[in-house]
Simulated assay, not measured.
Amino acid sequence: MTHWWRSAAGHLRTVAVSRFSSSVFRRSHYHTIQAIPRECTGSKVSARDRMQGRIPAVVFFQNLLDKNLDGRSQSKKHLLTVEKKQIKAILNSFDVPYFCSTRFPLQIRAGSGSSHLVESGTVLPIKIHKDEESGQILNLVFVWAEDGMKLKVDVPVVFKGEDVCTGIQKGGFLNKIRPSLKYLGPSEHIPSKIVVDVSNLDIEDRIFIRDIEVHPSLKLLSKNENMPICKVVPISLGNKEPIVE
């Protein structure tokens, strides 16, 4: 039965490739996020900001999530508000999963309409908190993402070629096992998405984490590189829910 468990790595390795999309890069730099400081916190203050068309946000170094802090990290932490209209415009031009794996320029002004620049740099959104019922964005979390800064990022996996996939055309379905992969590396080399081409997969073929090619500076934060990302499963198995192997 070993032939049913064959790897797609050999002749299919070249289709399981991640490349940073230049179009995504250009679009992200077309949007410079404008923010202003907020000195007060609390639910009432945040509710007032939202009523005024602004979204509470925070930006800091990712290592602030660790226990060992330093003064430089603390000094670069800012409580902010951003314009709801601008954030919605950005989300409309990006698929939401890619928003949290794409870098954006950030400018912090002294106040609304002010020309005085308090701080600027490149940031990566890491969380969008939304109201479960209304879908309203409650707040945003950014981390500084200048060139050379090492970040941990969950990169979404996108599957292409399902419409011409050999195995699917034979009556199988694509079991999407891993919706994202986590990497650690310089922010400028982290891709906004990982594109996996499944067009050449036959029934029982799979693509493994180890088959994915990214920039050599990126470290995969996974305990098992031999875990499959996807597999074409015979439809006779019935259940089309993701099967973790």
Rank of each mutant, 00 (worst) to 15 (best):
I126G: 06
F104C: 02
H129R: 12
T122W: 06
L124H: 03
A110S: 15
A145D: 09
S114Q: 05
L140Y: 00
I128M: 11
V141R: 08
T81A: 13
E146S: 11
S75V: 00
W144A: 00
Q136V: 11
A89P: 00
R109W: 13
S75L: 14
T102Y: 04
Q86A: 10
F104Y: 07
I90P: 06
K76A: 12
V118K: 07
I108P: 05
G121F: 01
R103D: 01
L138Y: 06
I90W: 02
Q107C: 08
K127T: 09
K77C: 13
G135T: 06
K84D: 12
P125R: 04
K127L: 13
E132Y: 08
Q86M: 13
F142Y: 07
K85H: 13
V82Y: 03
K130F: 08
L117D: 01
L140C: 08
K127M: 14
S115H: 10
S115T: 12
Q107V: 15
Q107S: 12
W144R: 05
R109L: 09
E133F: 08
L140R: 06
T81Q: 10
Q136E: 12
K77H: 13
V123D: 04
V143A: 00
H116Q: 12
I128K: 04
Q107N: 14
V82G: 03
N92L: 14
F94T: 04
A110P: 09
E132W: 06
V96I: 14
K127W: 10
R109E: 08
N92T: 03
R103P: 08
L124I: 07
I90F: 10
T102A: 01
E132G: 05
L140N: 03
A89D: 11
L106Y: 02
S134R: 12
V82E: 03
P97S: 05
Y98H: 14
H129M: 14
I137F: 04
H78G: 08
V96Y: 02
G113Y: 11
Y98N: 13
S114F: 01
V96F: 04
T81G: 01
T122I: 14
I87F: 07
F104D: 05
L79A: 02
V118T: 10
Q86C: 01
V123A: 03
D95I: 12
D131E: 14
V82K: 01
T122A: 07
K88T: 09
I128C: 07
K127N: 14
I137A: 00
K130H: 10
P105L: 04
V118H: 01
H78L: 14
V143W: 00
L140A: 09
S75T: 11
E119K: 12
V82S: 01
K85A: 15
C100Y: 12
V141F: 10
S101L: 07
S101T: 04
E132C: 07
L117M: 13
N92Q: 15
D147L: 09
A145F: 05
G113P: 08
H129W: 12
T122N: 09
F142Q: 06
G113W: 09
E146Q: 10
